[in-house]
Computed example of a mutant assay.
Amino acid sequence: MEKNIELRFMHWVFVDGIKFFGPGRAELLVHIQDTGSIAKAAKAMEMSYKKAWRMVDEMNAMGKSPYVVAQKGGKQGGGTELTERGKAVLAAYSKLNTKLRAAIEEESELPGLI
């Protein structure tokens, strides 16, 4: 019987031994960038608004500069956007993810042995 075998990987960035950035935070930033809202980003991820805000606060506090800035309400109703630093970190993480995925796909020996 043929088995469906696949290699999977996950990777995170640690700062001083603390998990700082990974797939969940990258996805949150993508949703914030797409929607302009932490609340909408949290909803898209089926995550509480409180947890999404905590993640944003941690990224902003631990990064060299903030990744996300929120604008107070007004005529446009406020909103949230990624800073240039946030965009750069998201792009670098995505690039690393692409390279790692390519390396995993290139390594085809293990699934054939199982």
Rank of each mutant, 00 (worst) to 15 (best):
K87M: 08
E58D: 05
Y93R: 10
G63L: 11
L29S: 06
D34P: 03
S65N: 08
G77M: 09
N97M: 10
A26P: 12
Y93V: 12
G17C: 09
E6R: 14
K40N: 06
Y49D: 15
N4D: 05
I114G: 08
L82N: 00
V15E: 09
R101S: 05
G78V: 02
L29I: 03
K40H: 10
Q71V: 15
P66T: 00
D16V: 08
E2D: 06
Y67E: 11
M55F: 11
R85A: 15
A91C: 01
E109D: 15
F9E: 13
V89H: 07
R54G: 06
L113I: 07
G17Y: 05
Y49Q: 13
I5S: 03
A44K: 12
H11Y: 10
G22V: 02
Y93L: 05
K72P: 08
H11R: 04
R25S: 08
H11G: 03
W53N: 12
A26C: 00
P66W: 03
M47F: 09
H31E: 14
A61L: 14
A91L: 04
L29W: 01
W12T: 05
A61S: 10
L90P: 05
L7S: 05
A70C: 09
S94N: 15
M10I: 07
A42Q: 02
P23L: 11
T80V: 15
A41L: 09
I18H: 11
R85P: 08
G24L: 02
E58N: 09
A91Q: 00
Q76I: 06
E2S: 11
A52T: 02
S94V: 03
R85C: 10
I38D: 07
G74Q: 04
A42K: 06
Q76A: 12
L7H: 11
H11K: 12
K19L: 12
I114E: 05
G79Q: 04
